[in-house]
Nucleic acid binder design. Structure first.
Lengths: 148, 148
DNA sequence: AATATATTGTTTGAAGTTCAAACTATTTGA
DNA sequence: TCAAATAGTTTGAACTTCAAACAATATATT
């Protein structure tokens, strides 16, 4: 196996961090277009964040996305207007707004999920990574490192 | 070592791809602010693309960035106006515009580079990844996979 | 050489994303 | 009760990007 010194390793990780994610975003965006889905990637991310929130209030969703509530309000406005999400005040605490996914949104998320699975599967297949326990473990470490 | 099945592995990679990149962007943006650099991340990316281009014409740079030439023109306009880059027509082919980095830009790129190195070093340190040849090799594969 | 076509960039108008700050409504705590 | 905290919305501005129309230069064809 080729030996990597620290400098090479750094450059590889650097490149990975800098370039790859952009490329993935572009690929995903193209996929949406190809399927005739009239949503931007950020709108899809909003839908994902709603799906993943235990209590999908404006605060929780915006927090998960790392944007301000104000920004989220405008995003939800258009998603609501386009018929992707519902919104209503919480009966218990009427300051809160609870957002819900309408069927149209669920459909998009399913397609998006399927696309992701396919992409990752093809990575595994082409790279024969299936049994790289160490890789997965390391990626998990990398992931948790950035959660802080 | 914990065993990961394909489904778990997929979810971890998925999460990595979806979330980490945004976080890194945010961290880098904050770093610029902290250092009093009045540039956005996209502007820094433009400078990086100029640095990495063998022949930094508008086409080459925009191509590397994955944006249209038109978009790049507006970006270069402001970077030029702020004194970060030079621009001049190519003497050989007067259709081309060759962009250059001025000292102010070089300084920013050096700082940005140093920050990246520091970030990756601290990942290595904290995660004790230094000797994970396999990880590096796998990341390289992952990286080259997305270059296609 | 003259003309058509291709290449390289710029400009313009529009849309999308985001933020900060001012504001409204509701809840909680003193 | 009344002040402070919390949850969201609105507004105005900046930034990023695109597509389409346009201008200039270079290359190919006749």
């Amino acid at each position: 196996m080729k030996k990597y010194n620290r400098q090479e390793a750094r450059e590889i990780i650097n490149e990975l961090l800098v370039k790859i994610f952009n490329r993935i975003l572009a690929i995903e965006g193209q996929n949406l277009k190809d399927k005739g889905i009239k949503l931007s990637m950020s709108e899809v991310h909003v839908l994902e964040a709603i799906e993943l929130s235990d209590e999908p209030t404006m605060s929780n969703i915006s927090n998960r996305l790392g944007i301000t509530i104000g920004s989220l309000t405008t995003a939800i406005n258009t998603l609501f207007q386009k018929g992707y999400v519902s919104r209503e005040r919480d009966a218990e605490d009427r300051r809160k707004v609870v957002v819900g996914l309408l069927p149209k949104a669920v459909e998009v998320l399913n397609e998006h999920d399927a696309f992701h699975k396919e992409m990752i599967d093809s990575i595994f297949d082409e790279m024969e990574l299936e049994k790289d326990e160490l890789l997965i473990e390391s990626l998990e470490k990398l992931s948790s490192y950035f959660k802080k």
